[in-house]
Design a protein around this nucleic acid. Sequence first.
DNA 1: GCTCATAACTAAACACTGTTCATTTAGTGA
DNA 2: TCACTAAATGAACAGTGTTTAGTTATGAGC
Lengths: 218, 218
Amino acid sequence: MSIKQRKEQEKSEMRTLILKTAMNLFLEKGFENITIRNIAEKIEYSPATIYLYFKNKDEILFTLRREGFEKLYEHQKTSLKLDDPLMRLHKHGEAYIQFALENPEYYDLMFMMRGPVKEMQETNDCDIGLASYELLKTNVKECMDAGHFPVMNIDIVAFSLWSYVHGIASLIIRGRGIMFPEEGIKSMVEEALNFMLVSKTEKKWDLENKQIISGVNV
Amino acid sequence: MSIKQRKEQEKSEMRTLILKTAMNLFLEKGFENITIRNIAEKIEYSPATIYLYFKNKDEILFTLRREGFEKLYEHQKTSLKLDDPLMRLHKHGEAYIQFALENPEYYDLMFMMRGPVKEMQETNDCDIGLASYELLKTNVKECMDAGHFPVMNIDIVAFSLWSYVHGIASLIIRGRGIMFPEEGIKSMVEEALNFMLVSKTEKKWDLENKQIISGVNV
DNA sequence: GCTCATAACTAAACACTGTTCATTTAGTGA
DNA sequence: TCACTAAATGAACAGTGTTTAGTTATGAGC
């Protein structure tokens, strides 16, 4: 039994080696430029070997995609410590965009790429991807209960907020944010989040001091 | 000279035939599944012939992309007749999303696809793509002047609003709007636009009657 | 130690892809 | 009719994802 276990572990290690190598190459050259042969060459195996561990190239992409969803979920959870719902939502959006901009290749894989296999995509997202969305909905609900938002359909508000951060992240990733200097992106994102959230209550975030002050955005 | 002109016209007609055929095939099966050979077969020429009219596959994509920018620009201009700046901006966003959802393949080409040739992408967008953005900025400026928005950096507000509609459109195009029934998408978009714009002035759009009434969103 | 089945691996091929180029075909001007 | 030019193409090249038949290594049972 010990040998069988070792074999299984070796198999699993090979899978993660392939995944890790693939992701490194993706980060280096973009996933549309990476071939099975590239990956095989890097790990010094024949291309055919990869097909012993993954059904096809898509399965590699989808596995990494799923990895991305898990990373994002973990990253987002860290923003749930704040007490005030609106502040929490603000931080939530900030964390989302931060993840996207720091892991553009993952984000591309998760939300921007055309999924080759629709079925697989959906089942994949359902598990952990939906969990992220539920997290958002909870947050939105609490903001609504606290009177920060007008009372309306939660799905609409949640989807709207998601759209907002996704739009910001994906436009920047596709290089449409060139009107902002590289180093100014972060503060732009801050102001954009304020523009979305603060005006709903006509208050202004003072994020430096982590408190709410009255006034209008400048 | 007449013959030369005819030749030129034939050349141009062939180009548009290729473009039209390519776009039809894209609409049918998605552009990632269409090959030069597919296009050639459809117009009953050899694959090599296409290279007499286009440098390569990317040039076809970029030409169609540019076509998309022109279509969008024309489409958006129709929404500029409204007098009230905020109403105009609302209509602007509505038109943008409508274009994206009615021409998802164009929209994909324009804003979602990974551009293979960065340089070409930029020059392409500069002409007409930037014109669209300038249109938006003008609109934003007028809203700000009219007191609908807090006074802040116009680029930030413009980019934020663009991000919003882009986020909505691109998430729906990628099938992330499944929490809304197909026939409910349009009204969801309406509510989402209200959520973004109306709360800034604490007024509510009554789009049925095309006028602004006081109150809070429901 | 010696078989032998099983697992791991790979070389070579297949059917594709975008692209190029020598060659053929068609059409015009003299 | 003949020569010249432009248009079109067949065949090839290098590359892709993927499959399969065949080879090598490894552990189990004697």
